[in-house]
């Protein structure tokens, strides 16, 4: 049997770009590849994506493998697992890095089990153990209360990485690499699931992922009307609104603005957490923020352990006064 060698990064594409998390994967992969003195490969799967291989190379890949087929237009588990199985059997990497995205969450475990291995999901740190040369895979567990370091027994050592946990390299347009096309060999009948509809719930204004300021509310806000007051502050600071899970579950705000382990992972300049207790699962989504501010009536709330500034008090009294003062200071 051929030997497993090199690092491979599955580069998810969207439109005419590789996703930021793919660039982050390449950044992390480049370092691992250099540590091992091996090559870094990018794998791109989709439809009409031929031109994107060069992008992966500018972000650090030594070579790129491209599977381009109309049947791969949308992510479908059966199609993507089958194609990735073929690619990995050909490329034989020692390490395979994927992104913890909508499709990565679905694809990575299924692909791993096809190879008779398990994957370590949602890693925040990757390193090569100097002695064993195996991949040390660090990931939060217990909702973020702890972190675990795993190693895999067999190759490929598979991981997904958390958004924004690793750093992408500056793209270098002068980088060159070899591009190899691989055929998909798919039949439409191989795909057991059908996508009947894709529903996009647009939120007005700045998207939470892109916002530099996020004003987020928790269960203590209590209603849709309450969130309108948060929205006012968000607008004033040219930011977006976020929420912990209960307001989403209760239908006060759309599910798409949930921050946390099972929602959005964001890292804005400023995160204002109002009536949020600061559960580890919620903090998983915002602990990368530059500054966290908390407003909570409970002085013992966990959120104060991670916030930089805080006020203990009822948000119904604190928030209007705060918003007004901010408005005044911004105008002065």
């Amino acid at each position: 049997m051929a030997e497993h060698k090199g690092i491979a990064v599955y580069c998810e594409v969207k439109g005419d770009k590789i996703l930021p998390i793919a660039a982050e994967g390449l950044g992390a992969g480049r370092k691992l590849a250099d540590d091992l003195g091996q090559e870094l490969s990018a794998v791109l799967v989709g439809s009409n994506i031929g031109s994107l291989a060069q992008q992966a190379i500018t972000y650090g890949a030594d070579r790129a493998y491209v599977v381009d087929d109309p049947l791969l237009k949308d992510y479908q588990t059966d199609a993507y697992v089958s194609v990735m199985e073929k690619v990995i059997k050909q490329v034989m990497p020692q390490v395979l890095i994927m992104g913890q995205t909508d499709s990565g969450r679905d694809l990575a475990p299924r692909l791993a089990f096809r190879f008779g291995i398990a994957v370590t999901m949602d890693c925040v740190d990757l390193a090569i153990d100097p002695e064993s040369k195996r991949l040390l895979q660090t990931k939060p567990v217990y909702g973020g209360n702890a972190q675990a370091v795993f190693t895999s027994e067999a190759d490929p050592q598979m991981v997904t990485i958390r958004t924004k946990a690793m750093t992408a390299l500056e793209p270098d347009a002068s980088r060159k690499g070899e591009i190899t096309n691989i055929t998909a060999d798919l039949q439409a009948s191989d795909i057991r699931t059908k996508i009947l509809d894709r529903v996009v719930e647009e939120v007005a204004g700045i998207k939470i992922e892109d916002a530099e300021v996020v004003v987020a509310g928790g269960r203590g806000i209590g209603s849709t009307e309450g969130f309108q007051q948060l929205e006012e502050l968000a607008k004033l600071l040219k930011g977006a609104m976020g929420a912990s899970r209960p307001p989403c579950d209760n239908g006060w705000v759309p599910d798409t603005i949930q921050v946390g382990l099972t929602g959005k992972i964001i890292a804005p300049e400023l995160y204002v957490a109002i009536a949020i207790s600061g559960s580890s699962q919620h903090m998983s989504g915002c602990s990368g923020s530059k500054t966290i501010i908390a407003i909570n009536k409970d002085p013992e709330a966990n959120i104060f352990r991670q916030a930089r500034f805080g006020v203990v008090g009822d948000w119904k009294k604190v928030l209007p006064a705060f918003t007004e003062k901010v408005r005044g200071l911004l105008a002065s």
């Binding site: 008779g116 370590t120 209360n145 370091v149 895999s152 027994e153 352990r305």
Partner: peptide, 14 residues
């Protein structure tokens, strides 16, 4: 197929 080498609590010094 995966081995747990270490389990630790991240510290928040803030």
């Amino acid at each position: 197929r995966t081995r747990l080498n270490k389990l630790f609590q991240p510290v928040h010094e803030g």
